[in-house]
Design a protein around this nucleic acid. Structure first.
Lengths: 195, 195
DNA sequence: AGCAGTGATGACACTCGGTGACCTCACTGT
DNA sequence: ACAGTGAGGTCACCGAGTGTCATCACTGCT
């Protein structure tokens, strides 16, 4: 008979997700999460650096996006490459479906968690900018294209979690980037954005 | 003789700024800040909701930006209005000069503080989007224009703090938004961004 | 079989951010 | 004079996060 149940980490993630969505993030203590997983507070912090991180561990987001950018057609513009990368991420989350959306909703419900999500986005933007530079995009352009793409992703995911069933995040990302183009285009956007 | 020295809040801000920049944010305890200001920990938390907020209290950023947007020429495109607002903010920070840049550098040096800064940016973006909607800009456009503008502001301020003396944040904001336009423009940005 | 690691977990004490409850006392207005 | 008022102090407490040491099933080697 083994001394411990296996998959402590997964059990902690499950427990945290359940409690955060039942009572809310700040009404949940780490001890409660650990107890629910049959572990102790100390063990929780061996698996996750802090109370928030338990919601952000799953899946190599950056890897998905960066790899998609690397394998995009080389002649494209910077924003187009970013779009490919973020659409790939959208496809992954579409596949996960409701569970992924549920996690995002929990994060949006707590300012503390949203804070953490924003810094994850920032680090994703940096990874994207690096990938663009590796493709020969110049420096101000790389950062701006990366950050703008992430902006579009955020807008798209906000819409996605309101209706996961009928909407595709991948499509919403594509649309958001198209809208971004319309707004930022030098000649368009002047009176076109009204109405 | 008064029972307490006046300007407790300002003294706390000063003390925090000094200690954060000497030892770093996480090597400074609230008790140390309070002691340096001749006060107690409890009093610190009566003035600031948490240890980070002490760096973000000064100045009505949102007000500056929103008012500038409201008083911009009405026929402009959404991104143009945002640009006006953020240039106004840039002018204010240019005026404050080195002290403002110093504060930003401290924030950038600590992940925790940067996290807080990001959520401040997010709330600024929401305020900007509201101001745009009040001017008749439609909904996806308002959010995207606001968020993209803030992106440009972030890029600009990152450049600004590297050389406050010779550079103007206001100008850097204008330039960043112009670069954003170049990237996002539907036909440009294709091969233009390389080399 | 015996035995020395190894590594995940528990136990415990501690620091620090943050809060609630109650006390103090210079100032203010009547 | 005297009852507020409000900024600040005191104290006790909770919960996040960490350092340190003990435990003990499992592994591999002899």
């Amino acid at each position: 008979m083994p001394r411990w149940q296996p998959d402590a980490r997964a059990r902690l993630e499950e427990a945290a997700l359940a409690l955060y969505s039942e009572r809310g993030f700040d009404q949940t203590t780490v001890e409660e999460i650990a107890a629910r997983a049959g572990l102790t507070k100390r063990t929780f912090f061996r698996h996750f650096v802090d109370k928030r991180e338990v919601l952000f561990g799953g899946g190599d987001i950056e890897g998905v996006v960066v790899r998609a950018i690397q394998s995009a057609p080389p002649a494209e513009g910077a924003l187009e490459s970013v779009s490919r990368g973020l659409e790939a991420l959208g496809a992954v989350l579409d596949e996960q479906g409701e569970p992924a959306a549920r996690r995002i909703r929990i994060v949006r419900a707590s300012p503390e968690l949203w804070e953490r999500q924003l810094i994850k986005f920032a680090s994703l933007a940096q990874a994207v900018a690096r990938a663009l530079r590796a493709r020969g995009v110049g420096d101000p352009a790389a950062i701006l294209a990366a950050e703008s793409g992430i902006t579009a992703l955020r807008v798209a995911s906000d819409r996605w979690i309101e209706d996961t069933k009928t909407q595709s995040l991948q499509r919403l990302v594509t649309e958001s980037i198209a809208e971004l183009r319309a707004i930022a285009s030098p000649r368009a956007g002047r009176a076109r954005t009204r109405r």
